[in-house]
């Protein structure tokens, strides 16, 4: 397995390089540059700004300089947030996004899987219909509606939880985590229910039952493992997305994460920041996929690391 991890990690280097190249040249196709926002700037001022950020060099040279910097773990300065480098911005914001995202995924996985199993085992009963209704609500109502409504009710009306912000208290975590978890709970429960129903009909489950194994043991020992496979496949990439921050949730709840950089950097033409968050996200996705594949191997004997 160690060999497998090393091979996959090395294999991700060309992927990241291609990602960097595509992002770098594509973002330059967008009209404007980081300094086109102020219409009064004189040519001298513009020239000074472009020079300071190496934007006056030929594009190829800028690219190679960037790659050279990345190889030395220098992701450059942020053009719009000049008090910080790209590494600092990600370094300061990521732990917060990670914390919110991990909790949200954990809550979503536990509740989603439990609801899915309950729905599958009590098919076409009121339990199943309730689970279906929860899933429908979670998928149909967007988080930019759920967030503000939860904020108004629990924060402003009942005063149980803080409206927004980020502090040491765990109370700040509840609303954003639940808001972020809800759509995932919905999706995971549907996924789990479907695969559970399918698994319960397979031959090996029937064999287990025929051999006189109790219902509890059949489900926990045999069915669950197989039924989890599609959920695990979903969890990998979904976790990668969630822990890199949700711009909607972070803005609504004023959470100091990195989610907004994905959008703001592109709108502001903050080239180094666009590159930084893209490469960072790319690496997380690659890592999450690797983890997913390892877990799948543990769950499914048919998967091998060769």
């Amino acid at each position: 397995m160690f060999q497998y991890v090393v091979r996959r990690t090395l294999g991700s280097i060309p992927t990241l390089f291609v990602l960097a190249a595509i992002t770098f040249f594509m973002m330059r196709v967008a009209p404007g540059d980081p300094f086109s926002g102020n219409r009064r700037l004189t040519p001298e001022v513009l020239a000074n700004l472009r020079r300071a950020f190496n934007l006056d060099l030929p594009l190829w040279e800028q690219f190679w300089r960037y790659i050279w910097g990345v190889l030395h773990f220098d992701f450059g300065p942020s053009i719009k947030n000049r008090d910080y480098s790209v590494s600092e911005l990600i370094g300061i914001g990521f732990p917060t996004s990670l914390e919110v995202g991990m909790w949200a995924m954990l809550v979503a996985a536990i509740i989603g899987i439990a609801l899915g199993i309950a729905g599958a085992l009590r098919r076409n009963t009121s339990v199943d219909y309730s689970v279906g209704a929860i899933a429908m609500v979670g998928l149909a109502i967007p988080i930019f509606v759920i967030g503000p409504v939860a904020q108004s009710y629990f924060g402003l009306h009942l005063r149980w939880l803080p409206i927004s912000g980020w502090g040491d208290s765990w109370t700040y975590r509840i609303l954003p985590v639940l808001t972020l978890a809800l759509p995932n709970i919905a999706y995971i429960s549907r996924l789990m229910r479907g695969s559970m129903i399918e698994i319960m009909r397979t031959n090996y489950v029937r064999t287990a039952r025929a051999k006189g194994l109790g219902e509890r043991r059949t489900i926990l020992r045999h069915a669950l493992k197989g039924a989890l496979l599609p959920v695990v496949a979903y969890l990998g990439p979904a976790t990668a997305i969630t822990i890199t921050g949700s711009i909607v949730v972070e803005q609504i709840f004023s959470i100091p994460g990195i989610g907004r950089y994905f959008v703001d950097a592109a709108i502001n033409r903050d080239y180094p920041l666009v590159m930084g968050v893209t490469l960072f996200y790319g690496s997380i996705v690659i890592f999450a996929n690797l983890l997913t594949d390892i877990v799948r191997g543990l769950l499914d004997p048919k998967v091998s690391y060769e």
Partner: peptide, 14 residues
């Protein structure tokens, strides 16, 4: 020029 400040134009033009 090394500061690369947007505000330079205030003194050169405004």
């Amino acid at each position: 020029p090394a500061t690369a400040s947007d505000k330079g134009y205030i003194f050169t033009s405004t």
